[in-house]
Amino acid sequence: MAGCSCFGAYVYVTAKLHFKSKEAYKKFVTKVKVRVLFVKKTKTYTKEWYKYAEDAVYSINVVTKGGNTPKLKQLLRDNPQYCKIENINDCFNTANLLFAYLFGDNGYHQDLSAAPMKVLSFDTRRYDDSGHFALNPPNEPYVDPGFKIQEEKIKVTLLKQYDYQQSLQAFYAVESNNVQKEKYAEEIAKVEHNLAELHQATVTCQAVSAFVVCRAAVDQAMANLYPVQI
């Protein structure tokens, strides 16, 4: 069975502060009261940010599903998405331009309405979920609970690697020193290697029924991960 759930577009505007260490991040969230990142710069806000986030990088990005218009691409291409705190107004300006376009009366929704509709999601279900087998339900196959443990191990590690990737890309984007920029590039390459290893282990676990094979693939992937530094 299959069914189309909706047409249209999803759009998310994300802002993030990237820190070089957990200690710097913990100090920021402890000392700085203003946590919302979509704000205009004020005297109090500036003082707090310079003190507790002076080495951080601010990033703003847009994630869309079914609604990436030419104008939106142009805004992201022509305006800074990564800023050092000393230049954070540049990224705030990008945010203001994005919000004006996305939520204004003559912007995003008009461009989107002129574009052909796209399927955002498509649901499928097994035939036996329809209830036809209710009088004679099939036996559920046994699944080793160890698969769930390996799945969680990969998930946690993937999230950590994606976080490294986003932060390294942010610091790389604002770095002016070529030597340091090259170091960031090397660390980004390590993360890409790690992600490939983890994805391969995921594919293996999805394709096999023997838990020992899945566990061996995950253990091998973990052993092959490069240490990453920001």
Rank of each mutant, 00 (worst) to 15 (best):
Gly66Leu: 06
Gly66Ile: 12
Tyr45Ile: 10
Lys33Gly: 02
Tyr45Arg: 11
Leu102Lys: 07
Leu112Asn: 06
Cys214Pro: 07
Ser176Ala: 03
Arg126Gln: 13
Asp128His: 10
Val174Cys: 10
Ser176Ile: 01
Ala100Lys: 15
His132Glu: 07
Leu76Pro: 14
Glu48Ile: 00
Cys214Ser: 02
Val213Asp: 09
Ile85Leu: 14
Ala189Gly: 10
Gln74Asn: 02
Ala24His: 08
Asn136Gln: 12
Asn177Glu: 14
Val39Lys: 10
Glu187Gln: 15
Leu98Arg: 08
Leu195Ile: 15
Trp49Val: 00
Lys40Ser: 11
Tyr164Glu: 00
Ser113Leu: 08
Gln169Val: 09
Ala134Arg: 14
Phe99Thr: 03
Leu17Ile: 07
Asn194Lys: 03
Asn224Thr: 03
Gly3Ala: 14
Val191Gln: 11
His199Gln: 05
Thr204Tyr: 04
Tyr172Gly: 00
His109Lys: 12
Val212Ile: 13
Ile154Lys: 10
Lys155Thr: 11
Gln229Trp: 06
Glu175Ala: 02
Gln200Thr: 07
Cys205Ile: 13
Ala15Trp: 00
Glu152Pro: 01
Asp219Arg: 13
Pro141Glu: 10
Met222Ile: 15
Val13Cys: 02
Ser113Phe: 03
Thr46Asp: 12
Val13Glu: 04
Lys22Tyr: 08
Asn87Asp: 15
Pro145Phe: 12
Ile85Thr: 11
Ser176Asp: 04
Gln169Ser: 13
Ile85Glu: 06
Glu192Leu: 09
Gln110Glu: 15
Pro138Ile: 08
Val208Asp: 08
Tyr142Cys: 01
Gly8Ala: 02
Gln166Cys: 01
Asp105Arg: 14
Phe38Ala: 04
Gln180Arg: 11
Glu54Gly: 13
Arg125Glu: 06
Thr30Glu: 15
Ala216Asp: 15
Asn61Ile: 00
Lys40Ile: 01
Thr157His: 00
Gly146Asp: 14
Asn136Ala: 12
Ile149Met: 05
Thr124Phe: 12
Tyr101Gly: 03
Glu54Pro: 00
Val208Gln: 11
Asn177Trp: 06
Asn87Tyr: 13
Tyr184Phe: 15
Ala173Asn: 11
Glu54Leu: 04
Tyr52Ala: 05
Asn61Gln: 12
Glu23Val: 05
Ala223Thr: 10
Gln229Phe: 05
Val143His: 10
Phe171Met: 04
Lys183Trp: 10
Pro80Val: 01
Leu97Ser: 09
Ser5Gln: 09
Met117Lys: 13
Lys155Ser: 13
Phe19Ala: 11
Pro141Lys: 07
Phe122His: 09
Val156Gly: 01
Val143Thr: 14
